Simulated assay, not measured.
Amino acid sequence: MRNIILSIFGIPVSRTGQVRGRKISAFFICLLIAIFSWLLITLSRDYTQRFRFMASYVNLPKDRAIVNLLPDSLEMSLTASGFSLLNLKWEENKSIHIDCSVMRMKKDSLYYIPLASVTDRIGRQISSDARVLSVQPDTLFFNFSRKARKVVPVRLISTITYAKQFQLADSIRVTPSVVEVYGAEDEVKGISFVETQPLIVYNADKSISRKVAFNTHNKLVGLSSDSALVSITVDEFTEGSLEVPVSVINLPEGYSIRLFPDKVTVKYKVAISNIEKVNADLFRAVVDYAEIKKENGSRLRVELFDQPSFVNSVRVNPEKVEFIIRK
């Protein structure tokens, strides 16, 4: 079979079936040259094809804001050499800049750009030999309003759970905590905060620092930052307890009061890293003499007026104490 194929292409075969190596090499070199020449001629010709390009807008008025949505892409029919078109196929998300300094006024704050008038500029951005035949949409409209700015707080949207024995050891920090919003006056006026994309963490057992993007539903406004850094301090917690003396507030002059018991047990949870910081002086347990009439009994409720910020799940035992009043 191999000999038959070689004979068809005019390549002589020896009696032993061996092909002359030099002639085979020459044949394939000629074949490659022919293919290359065909490609060169074919790709040098002009072709017409449709493409979609991303659109960006430059030279917009700095003192005004757009109140209508502009297309983020443009579909074009263009003619160019095969080389240029092939190159465009390889370029993903190529962006075309629309120069807004050529806008024409239609009425009041409404302006427009007929894209047929700027096809030469567009074509030069695509390729040196590209000729734009048509653009969709064929006209861009710009509706302007006064521009406004204001600073609003950032609101974190999160779902966080912790592994067993682990808890949040400090308040969650969001940086920046505020962000500047700018755009059309009517749009900015209705914004009182900016939300983040949801931050979801399950079974956290160590501190977390994560960048979270802002939730930008409104495309007519811009933000001074596109994301915030969320820092979550997580630590292993343990339970502790200590005795705290109970003091009396609002005691009338000339009166004394005895409490039974005069100390209560305060139970709390604290991060292991802070356990050595806890002592009874950081807590203040009190009963209010003014509550005697409200309680209408022989016991007063114990309340904690002071406690360290790094403890949580604080409980007092007993919750009420008995008392004897003396004049």
Rank of each mutant, 00 (worst) to 15 (best):
M1D: 12
S7Q: 13
V13G: 04
S14T: 08
T16C: 14
G21F: 14
G21K: 14
R22H: 13
I29C: 13
C30Q: 12
L32A: 15
I33N: 12
L39P: 11
Y47G: 09
R52K: 14
F53C: 02
V58A: 07
K62T: 12
R64L: 13
R64Y: 10
I66D: 00
V67Q: 09
L70G: 05
S73G: 09
S77L: 14
L78C: 08
L78W: 06
G82P: 08
F83G: 12
E91D: 10
E92D: 11
N93I: 07
I96G: 03
I98V: 05
R104M: 10
M105G: 10
L115G: 04
A116C: 15
R121I: 13
Q125K: 04
S127D: 15
D129A: 06
R131F: 11
S134C: 06
V135K: 02
F142G: 00
S145N: 02
T159L: 05
Q167P: 04
L168V: 00
V174F: 02
T175P: 04
P176A: 03
S177P: 07
A184Y: 02
E185P: 04
F193N: 14
L199H: 06
L199K: 05
L199D: 04
I200H: 11
I200C: 10
I200N: 12
Y202D: 15
K206A: 13
I208N: 03
S209P: 11
S209Y: 11
R210L: 15
V212L: 04
N215R: 09
H217T: 12
N218F: 00
N218A: 01
V221G: 01
V221H: 01
D226Y: 08
A228C: 04
S231R: 09
V234G: 02
G240L: 02
S247A: 12
S247D: 11
V248A: 05
N250H: 14
N250W: 10
K263S: 07
A271Y: 00
A271F: 00
N274H: 09
N274A: 07
I275L: 07
E276N: 13
R284Q: 09
R284K: 10
A285P: 00
Y289I: 08
Y289L: 08
L300K: 02
L300V: 05
S309G: 11
S309T: 11
N317K: 12
